[in-house]
Design a protein around this nucleic acid. Structure first.
Lengths: 220, 220, 220, 220
DNA sequence: CATGAATGAGGTTTCATTCAT
DNA sequence: TATGAATGAAACCTCATTCAT
């Protein structure tokens, strides 16, 4: 990311300022509909000065996404590590509860990520995706602990970890439909139940049966 | 939606042509990054002629989304009605299989919906969302049948229906991550297993237990 | 003016239809802001068919102006000839009254002429101006009759004729200001008085005095 | 009127520049037939930069009209105040002479006003009309002084003031016809004579007589 | 005679980016 | 460091006119 300043500390300080200033603007108007003039005004900088710290408009998007995702991932890490003393099941329930509430609080920001990632350059996109991957990995660790402890039985841990994350995001992505169905409290409770049932140990028979169902009639 | 033609048949024919022509372009470049000139060229029309059938650029987005979603919803309806003779469980397994494969085939189109719906005018957005809602309702009907038959046990049918749809979409939205975890076949099989386990009858005790877990430690 | 039809009678019939149909549209929206599509719709014709009788958009303006001015001039001629049996002063008073009322009824049409004549081609403009000139000439004849009869004393008859016409137009051109000053009845009465005083016989002395005033202090 | 600059001094300086640069162009081609590209070129600015000081094409019209009318009204004010030491009759004669010559010098600009005011937004139109009104009021003051001094006898001062202004405008509006009748010098002299006769004191009898004429034969 | 689908040049406006100060 | 005036390419959209039917 091009810069005219060599003062690294200043640059990262300014970029944090940019990320914070621009977030509500981007979330409200969308990246494409926000002009550099508006960005500069939100950052309380002149346009020329803004370009002192960024190389182009896209950089503002990347800076903002990276910063917010960093914050979000750290939050999840804190939540997970703070429940390390609990049993895996208890920890999972608590983490899901807090993760879903945090996602709800992040609000349209989650939706923003799904919408605007496409506007990033490939290398910037990779950075963002790596952060997203690390978010999932936090859940993988927790699920792994549960499997080791015999509380969960999971074939494909990364997939279930993804399911949890997506289920959190879903509340943001489809709020317009889900709000008509239930409250956030209901949502958390119900989804947690479904998850726990689906990863509860035992039930091998059912699985074998299902696998049969799945394979036979669909063969052509 | 404004038109200069009164020939309704012609208008809807051209609009279908527009919807089909523009879809790959939109999916590849994004709505905002596609210019009217490109749209016209993709439709093999002059720009002026394009405006003979639409009122503005936004209309192209709406026409394309409406058409594709219509197609998609009809497909799901067909899938579901074709499995009416099967038992609910068998039907669900089959429908999920086909629905997930259809969503995979629709490719980036699913992602496109999540990204670009924001660019629609409120009334156009409502139309699109109603179609989306009707998609979910197809699954609700199927789940309802399973509950009646005693094969499923579901508190919140609309929520589970949403889960199924989202799980399908997720394969498109997060392909970049999921592809590293498993194949589509694995994905379908695993997600189906998780779903069936989570809605399997019985297990009341577990639920009560979970509810306790959920509520007690989180109360402040 | 180009035509595709050779049937002269039909052409002039259609052009009259066009003139009548388009007048309210032009007066309301202005020539430049009215599209051929709207013109065709107002004429109850297709665009293509309209071009069967005209050579271009400008022709519509010319046709409409020519027709309406023709109508207007004829009206004034009728008014003037119908008062031929009255004394010149009586006739003038009556003609002015009726002319001003007719101009008021023509409404924004008068303003339209001043605004849009510039959009005519030079030769079309000449035709319109000739009609306007013939309007003035009708008043010149009347004034000439009065001078011969000794009821008026006018140095420059064409100028006074112009003054009368302009004073009529002024009511249309500056209605927004004049309406605050007086009613149409007041306007007619006052302007008639001023006119009659200014062309009353006698008062040579005053004129000589004025001429002196006019010439001496302004010479440099 | 929207601006991107907060530097008020610069903005009004540039707008004056725009007003001056664009006037001959507008007068020659008309507002509607002048493109933004041409306006920018005439102002020696890029199109984008032009939009730095205006909110839209209409603003250019308003800026130009406001500026020129301001100049014109100030001119008349100066003329009138410079003749304050003269007798009302002398002053009127002198002011008319100078006002008519100024209007003649302003050339097609007067016609432009009558033609293009319709293209202004209502609020902009109001501003222009207020300036026009203040022009008339200058003449009202002068006429009022003459009435007080007993040199004029006028029922409706605002109307006569309007007549004077219109008679000046008329030379511009109908130059094509008036030029064939007389020179500007003749025009000024004749119109001044007519005016002075029409507002000369005395002649009550004639008025009473005329009023009779006016009312009786036209009643139905 | 009559239609209206089709054209494409040209209109107004926006905006990321630069550079003299 | 900091400013914001200036650029110009490119965006969306309109419309007079033509021509195959």
């Amino acid at each position: 990311m091009r810069t005219f300043s060599n003062n690294e500390g200043l640059v990262s300080e300014r970029r944090e300022h940019i990320a914070k200033s621009v977030a509500p603007l981007f979330v409200r108007k969308g990246y494409g509909q926000t002009s550099i003039r508006e960005i500069a005004k939100a950052c309380d900088m002149s346009m020329g000065h803004l370009y002192y710290y960024i190389g182009g408009k896209e950089d503002v998007l990347q800076i903002m996404m990276d910063f917010d995702l960093h914050f979000y991932v750290n939050l999840v890490k804190k939540i997970i590590s703070s429940s390390r003393s609990l049993s895996p099941t208890e920890a999972l329930v608590k983490v899901i509860d807090q993760f879903f509430r945090a996602t709800d609080a992040a609000g349209d920001f989650t939706l923003f990520f799904y919408q605007e990632t496409k506007n990033l350059q490939p290398d910037a996109r990779k950075i963002i995706m790596d952060r997203e991957r690390s978010l999932v990995m936090e859940f993988e660790k927790l699920l792994g602990r549960g499997c080791t402890a015999g509380e969960f039985q999971i074939d494909n841990i990364p997939l279930v970890a993804n399911n949890i994350v997506i289920t959190g995001h879903m509340w943001a992505l489809r709020r317009w439909m889900l709000r008509k169905i239930c409250t956030l409290d209901d949502y958390i409770q119900n989804q947690t139940e479904y998850l726990l049932k689906s990863i509860a140990p035992g039930g091998k028979k059912g699985l074998a049966f299902n696998k049969g169902l799945l394979r036979e009639p669909l063969n052509k």
